[in-house]
Design a protein around this nucleic acid. Structure first.
Length: 497
RNA sequence: GUCCCCUUCGUCUAGAGGCCUAGGACGGCUCCCUUUCACGGAGCAGACACGAGUUCGAAUCUCGUAGGGGACGCCA
């Protein structure tokens, strides 16, 4: 028996995703809380891959999850390297599929000590037994395996002869309450008859979640486990295994669930739920983390816009709370806008440019122009992809006169305004406009066309961007070329014939 | 069905027996700024699930009811 005094001498937390698709936002939140706790207490953050479900796990998914974690900036100290997938750290392997020997040893120990047994029941037999129990009105129908009492040697002989068996944990002799001192929920009690003999090892030798989770948390010296509430009832099984092995238990904290707007567990059918989708839609990783952190945790001073470092500094489990939280995409957008608008121009352009290129939008290759345009559009952007329609306005190949302009162009004075505008641009001596230049041009149009107010403004705006509402012309026009303005006005004139 | 967890404005939340006439944020509405839109600013509406108890005093403690969620797999 190992000496367990001071077993958790280091703060070690883990996030343990199963690689069955992109990282889910609920998973990102769980990962974040573990990450924050580890960083706050100068501990280690470990990424462990729970890939014992061979059916659903894939290498592709693993790479996607790792990429999402990296994108979010939730860097792990131990676990598979995001590029090479090789384990980093001294408690590996970090993929459960590579730890089969470890689980097997523990299972053998349990078998030898009579705390687990080989069970040869078929699905049909299990089903039939359940039916009978239900018919008898049993309060807690649980599996009663005839193999529970079979001598280990006999069972081993059966297996040698080619029969398949699972390893089950014995629960029927455990007649007592188990309790968990949860960091978030306080004392939680479970009656032992809540569960029946459960599977430790599948018939193909693969361990099952509740088993390998305990083995790994112990072997990897995980000191704190923050996980989703859906695992709360799993804790009983895990507690039983800890007890059977005389292993010290980590501190558990069960975080509430992230819900959809119908208060069900967040599901894909209602829109984006994976971090990757949000990335593609133009959300910032720091904004997504910030938002998701607030779903079940609050800053001590109720500050809402937080950097990762601020979250680390102010994180504590006693501000984690226990009821489910609805994922409000509208507020996420607002949080994202706050982070986005706070960016320096260079950084913001770096974010926007890929979206423009992906949408085949052309733009001048000079820095002052880029930053000037950012200054103009910044306050209109909530997510990065919002930039696309704005920059489209400036790209001649996308210029079109929108139907909402029809009314404005129908006004009796509009034709004169557009014509005078075009003339004024044509007569302009320079090639690039300043705000001041624009004001002068506008005054000229005003006088010559004998209009003012919206009769002047709106047709001019249509002549520039093809629609009567939008960004202020005096800041937009300096971003455009003389030739472009002339040809746009011409298109509008042509459309008015 | 059984067991476990949860319940403050539409949503995220603050709240640890008197500081609560319940505060903030998103969203909504009104107004201001603006010859449009957005940004920004000012304001308004909006919640302690219900019922008992404990207490001089309850959003806060206890019990019950209702509602919601989760788990009951050779998924995690």
């Amino acid at each position: 028996m190992e000496n367990h005094s001071n077993y958790f001498s280091e703060v070690r937390l883990r996030y343990a995703p199963s690689p069955t698709g992109y990282l889910h936002v609920g998973g990102a939140r769980t990962a974040l809380y573990n990450f924050l706790y580890a960083r706050k207490h100068k501990g280690k953050f470990i990424l462990r891959i729970e890939d014992t479900d061979q059916e659903r796990s894939s290498m592709e998914s693993l790479k996607m999850v790792l990429a999402d974690m990296k994108w979010l900036g939730l860097n792990w100290d131990e676990g598979p390297n995001a590029e090479t997938l090789e384990g980093m750290g001294s408690y590996g392997p970090y993929k459960q599929s590579e730890r089969l020997k470890i689980y097997d040893e523990v299972a053998q120990d349990l078998l030898k000590r009579g705390l687990a047994y080989y069970c040869f029941m078929t699905d049909a037999e299990i089903d039939a037994q359940r039916q009978t129990q239900m018919a008898d009105g049993a309060a807690h129908p649980h599996l009663e395996s005839p193999y529970e009492t079979m001598a280990l040697a006999d069972a081993q002989a059966k297996i040698k002869s080619g029969e398949k068996a699972v390893v089950r944990f014995k629960t029927r002799h455990l007649k007592k309450d188990y309790h968990l001192n949860d960091l978030i929920r306080g004392d939680v009690h479970f009656p032992s008859d809540m569960v029946g003999d459960f599977v430790l090892l599948r018939s193909d030798g693969m361990p099952v979640y509740n088993f390998c989770c305990v083995v790994d948390d112990y072997k990897m010296k995980i000191s704190h486990v923050l996980r989703a509430e859906e695992h709360l009832s799993n804790s009983l099984r895990q507690l039983m295994i800890y007890e059977a092995m005389s292993w010290p238990t980590p501190q558990f904290g069960h975080v509430s669930l992230v819900l959809d707007d119908d208060r069900q567990k967040l599901s894909k059918r209602k829109g984006a739920t994976s971090c990757n989708q949000f990335r593609e839609e133009g959300y910032l990783p720091e904004a997504l983390l910030n938002f998701v952190a607030l779903l079940g945790w609050s800053h001590p001073e109720e500050k809402e816009i937080l950097s990762l470092q601020e979250m680390i500094d102010s994180f504590s489990t006693d501000r984690l709370h226990s009821s489910g939280a609805v994922f409000d995409r509208v507020k996420l957008k607002w949080v994202n806008a706050q982070h986005l608008r706070a960016k320096a121009p260079v950084e913001m352009w770096g974010l926007i440019e890929p979206f423009l290129k992906a949408n085949n939008i052309s733009f001048p290759e000079d820095r002052p122009w880029k930053f000037q345009s950012l200054e103009v559009f910044k306050n209109y952007l909530e997510i990065v992809s919002d930039a696309v329609p704005f920059y489209k306005l400036l790209d001649d190949k996308y210029f079109e006169i929108l139907s909402e302009s029809a009314e404005v162009l129908g006004w009796p004075t509009s034709r004169a305004v557009v014509q005078e505008w075009q003339n004024a641009v044509k007569e302009f001596a320079g090639t690039a406009f300043t705000e001041d230049d624009f004001n002068k041009l506008q005054d000229a149009v005003k006088i010559k066309s004998q209009t003012k107010g919206k009769n002047l403004f709106m047709p001019m705006r249509v002549a520039v961007i093809g629609k009567p509402h939008g960004t202020e012309l005096k800041i937009l026009v300096p971003l455009m070329s003389k030739a472009s303005l002339i040809s746009r006005a011409q298109k509008v004139l042509d459309s008015m014939k």
